[in-house]
């Protein structure tokens, strides 16, 4: 008797649960369709394409196995682009995060005109990358550019900053830091405002210096933000190449060719779509590995409220 009753209830519950779940699925459908057709399917297609040859005229694509990957390993420009990207990451990520944190702590304090400062720091972020690149193109131009005019005051000779393979990549690094620090600052600023001023007062009563308070309290409490910013910074380091298109086009001598820029050149300049797909798969793998690694290793050391 009880079993029977329980069975009826269970059946009724599933019966009732079916209609809402259909509703749920229907509501999800538009987003799901967009996601599948513009994100998941292209990803899958890219992976498949990387195992085929590039179709040329009447010649259709044929399955070539890992041939594209073998070609990639023998491609010195690929290695150059990958190495450039590593240098670019190391050059931009820690510096822009540190600068963002510094600016956020600075404008979070009680100082006159901080509203203006916040705006000033944030301005590079709202400018389009193309515009930013053009501004810096002028700064770096030989002899009459801002950088050379300043160094000339100290008697340094004129230099072609963007034309010299030894300095070109570092110029790009500087532009990126300038562009990204303000953006990351906003996240730090939002997180800093969540920290109760009572904590600083409690620490001040105990005689903690501002640096001690930052080291023991502020910085650990900002760890979730740092993790978030770090992931974004890494993704951006592989994703943003607009300024390279404007400033150097990967030159001189591939000194500023980043991975995504190289993919763009292969795909849309040389129309070698399979090789571009192969390089894209590598890029995706790198990003996935970095993201998973960050969340797995850093997550444990982060305090979430």
């Amino acid at each position: 008797m009880t079993e029977l009753a329980a069975g009826t209830i269970a059946r009724r519950r599933t019966g009732r649960g079916f209609i809402p779940s259909i509703h749920g699925w229907l509501l999800l459908l538009p987003a799901a369709v967009l996601l599948v057709s513009f994100t998941h399917w292209p990803t899958a297609a890219t992976i498949i394409d990387s195992f085929f040859s590039t179709p040329k005229g009447a010649r259709p694509a044929v399955f070539v196995g890992v041939e594209n990957y073998e070609a990639m390993l023998d491609d010195p420009i690929f290695w150059r682009a990958l190495w450039n990207n590593v240098v670019y990451c190391i050059g931009t990520i820690p510096a822009s995060i540190a600068l963002a944190l510094l600016m956020a702590v600075f404008v979070n304090g009680r100082l006159a005109g901080r509203g203006f400062l916040r705006l000033a720091y944030f301005t590079p972020t709202v400018l389009p990358m193309i515009a930013v690149a053009n501004i810096w193109l002028f700064f770096f131009s030989p002899s009459y550019g801002l950088v050379d005019q300043v160094t000339a005051l100290f008697g340094a000779p004129a230099r072609n900053w963007l034309g010299d393979p030894s300095t070109a990549l570092w110029c790009i690094v500087v532009v990126t830091i300038w562009k990204e620090a303000g953006f990351f600052m906003i996240f730090y600023l939002a997180a800093l405002q969540q920290i109760s001023p009572r904590l600083a007062e409690a620490a001040a009563l105990e005689g903690a210096s501002r640096w001690y308070f930052f080291r023991r309290i502020t910085f650990p409490l900002l760890m979730p933000t740092t993790l978030f910013v770090l992931v974004n910074a890494v993704i951006n380091a592989f994703r943003l190449v607009d300024h390279i298109v404007v400033m150097t086009r990967g030159g001189p001598d591939n000194a500023t060719a980043l991975l995504l820029f190289y993919i763009y050149e292969i795909g849309f300049k040389f129309w070698d779509t399979s090789y571009a797909a192969t390089l894209t798969v590598v890029l995706l793998a790198i990003l996935a590995a970095v993201a998973i690694g960050q969340f797995l290793f850093l997550d444990r050391r982060v305090h979430y409220q």
């Binding site: 109760s196 009572r198 904590l199 007062e201 409690a202 001040a204 009563l205 105990e206 005689g207 903690a208 023991r216 309290i217 650990p220 409490l221 305090h303 409220q305």
Partner: peptide, 20 residues
């Protein structure tokens, strides 16, 4: 004198404990 030099301890209304 700054707070640290006043020889006082304080309990805040919100406790002000360090959450981490």
């Amino acid at each position: 004198l700054p707070p640290a030099k006043r020889q006082i301890a304080m309990v805040f209304q919100s406790y002000a404990l360090f959450p981490h």
